[in-house]
Nucleic acid binder design. Structure first.
Lengths: 192, 192
DNA sequence: GTTGACAATCTAGCGCTGGTAGATTTATTT
DNA sequence: AAATAAATCTACCAGCGCTAGATTGTCAAC
């Protein structure tokens, strides 16, 4: 019967509206202003309805984070293709990563800082998470011996840059210079 | 008159008790459990008393953060002295930084992640903050041309390592290898 | 010693939060 | 049409940061 199917479709739509509203509010006024009540108001349902979709507030953050990974992974993949040299590919991916972090700070926060219930580097890690790591690994791979170690280091550096700059700890005015310095190091300017 | 002096002394003591309690609670059960009510209970006063010491909750986080900088800066300075080579000094400082982050996660959080009202890289930046940056700069300096850029990059990398590992994004089991990889890069193994 | 001023401190409250129990409405099946 | 099941809401809980206004305690002047 098509009735239950329609119901499921409607429920999925509503869920998407919740995630969308959370993302919009977070991007607009920060995650602190994303409350269950506010979201309920936004989708025009009462608060308890939200708990039929998500176990708790963290799970909503997690849903936004997952959306974010779904966008970041292909973005990085594409950036990796343009560059002629492997050094250029590395720089392009790094730049794309930081651009993502600065343009969608709230989503980035959900992905990497806030408690979201997402599990990394575990057996049940969602595909998009692995895919994001894989995209970074792909550009690091031709430049080193231990790929995983190097990728973790590369990622950590990018994350640190994004976070310290977002919090005003380092000078936004020197983003480019820092990037060159770092890419030079990772690309192993010394080896070629 | 000694009375008002005694009062000031008592007030300063009480303030220290607040900061100490905040730090302890945060280290024990996380910052979320550090509430004004809980702190008031801890120092055996009513809630409003806390507002005679701190403007708001963030200011308490800031006080803990400042304490943290007061400890991190000399720790890094000392680490910088032991090593025979400049590469060793860099590694020692990096190791000390990460050790600090992992052993006092709550203090580290207050210093670099939570809103704390502290202002970095500004004219009214407290001395201990500048001193912390200076300690890192000192070990980076002999290894590069643009010191400030290199120090920001070094710091960002350490911060990224600390954060990603603390959140289970990268494997704690490979901390040492990552460290070697990174120190090698920053020390410019290629140049000597 | 008593009184009045002032500071220190507390009680009680506001509007908000995440989360839930139980009533009520709506839809489906018999 | 009546009974059952699902969807949804109202109303609440305990706790939060923060504050207004009452209350207590301290000290100086008379």
């Amino acid at each position: 019967m098509g009735i239950s199917e329609r119901r499921e479709r409607e429920k999925a739509e509503r869920e998407q509206r919740i995630v969308g509203a959370a993302r919009m509010l977070a991007e607009q006024d920060g995650w602190a202003s994303v409350t269950i009540r506010r979201l309920a108001q936004e989708i025009e349902y009462s608060q308890p309805v939200l708990y039929a979709h998500f176990e708790n507030r963290d799970a909503i953050v997690g849903a936004v984070a997952l959306e974010g990974f779904g966008e970041l992974a292909p973005t990085l993949r594409k950036s990796a293709l343009k560059g002629a040299t492997s050094r250029q590919a590395l720089e392009d991916v790094a730049t794309a990563y930081l651009e993502f972090a600065f343009e969608r700070p709230a989503v980035y926060e959900a992905m990497f800082i806030l408690p979201s219930g997402l599990r990394f580097a575990k057996s049940d890690t969602p595909h998009v998470l692995r895919e994001t790591f894989g995209a970074m690994m792909a550009v690091v791979e031709p430049l080193c011996t231990d790929v995983e170690i190097a990728t973790e280091a590369f990622w950590a550096t990018l994350h640190g840059l994004a976070e310290l700059e977002r919090h005003g700890r380092i000078r936004s005015s020197h983003r480019k210079e820092r990037m060159r310095h770092i890419v030079d190091m990772f690309a192993g300017r010394h080896l070629r």
